[in-house]
């Protein structure tokens, strides 16, 4: 059963890489998020009627009525759980495509080493292309364009970068150049940007602090994503080599 093997492998790979990223995030990234939230101002549009208990410092909620994990162990637990879930989702893509590669492509079969190279490609697809060249990683409280537009652009950018890298790798030499062109399309369109850049908080001290936090956040997400994707790719390569066999 290919499906069962892919699913089980992805769960194991996702748990390992998501857990590692969750720990990295807990020590290196979450402190930056918490620090930025201290400068968050009440969003007047989202919560027209502010209730008495709205001033909980450091706690982030869009809607006063909606459930959210309590700060501390509960919030950390949900964050690591979400990291693992995202790890499993990425591992499902990775292992499925690797299995297809082994079945169909006239290229070397995957190992842990080539898997790590796939991990680097995935980091370009899911992090570098959409985030470093488009929608930069943001701390809470940063002004940004409409969420749906950014999510749409993010999905388009990921899909076209993935297609571009696939063309570059698999297509015959004459057609390889169309790969980078595909990947460049979302950047020529341009990522959706807010009308004015900056932060919701207009206090000069807060802006200074948030700018510094943004730089740190950018650096640590990039390092963390690098570790996460290389591990995810290497483990996926190993899983495909050992456990996932498609019948030709």
């Amino acid at each position: 059963m290919a499906f069962r093997n892919i699913l089980l492998s992805a769960i194991v790979v996702g748990i390992f890489s998501g857990l590692l990223y969750g720990l990295f995030q807990h020590f290196q990234i979450s402190p930056i998020i918490y620090a930025a939230e201290a400068y968050e101002v009440e969003d007047i549009v989202a919560t027209p009627a502010a209730h008495g208990h709205s001033g909980t410092a450091g706690h982030h909620e869009h809607n006063e009525e909606a459930w959210g994990p309590k700060d501390g162990a509960e919030r950390i637990g949900y964050t690591i759980g979400a990291d693992i879930a995202i790890g499993i989702a990425y591992a499902l893509f990775m292992i499925s495509l690797m299995a297809l590669h082994n079945l169909k492509a006239n290229k070397p079969k995957l190992t842990m080493m080539t898997g790590a190279a796939w991990g680097i490609a995935s980091m370009i697809i899911f992090f570098a292309a959409p985030a470093m060249f488009g929608l930069h990683p943001e701390v809470p409280g940063t002004e940004a364009a409409t969420l749906e537009n950014r999510q749409g652009w993010w999905s388009l950018c990921v899909a076209l970068t993935a297609a571009g890298i696939a063309v570059l790798y698999y297509a015959p030499v004459k057609l390889k150049l169309s790969g980078p062109i595909l990947a460049a399309i979302p950047h020529m369109m341009g990522a959706p940007m807010p009308e004015h850049h900056g932060f919701a908080n207009t206090d000069p001290q807060a802006i200074e602090a948030l700018s510094q936090l943004t730089t740190q956040f950018y650096l640590f997400t990039a390092v963390g994503m690098g570790i996460f994707f290389v591990l995810l790719g290497a483990l996926s390569g190993l899983a495909v080599q050992r456990f996932v066999k498609l019948n030709a």
Partner: peptide
């Protein structure tokens, strides 16, 4: 990516750390 507040609040820090569009 799910827009519901509950999904957003639970995964908030992870969404930021994976540089997904958030807020």
């Amino acid at each position: 990516f799910a827009p519901m507040d509950v999904a957003h609040n639970a995964a908030h820090d992870a969404r930021h750390s994976f540089a997904f569009p958030c807020h």
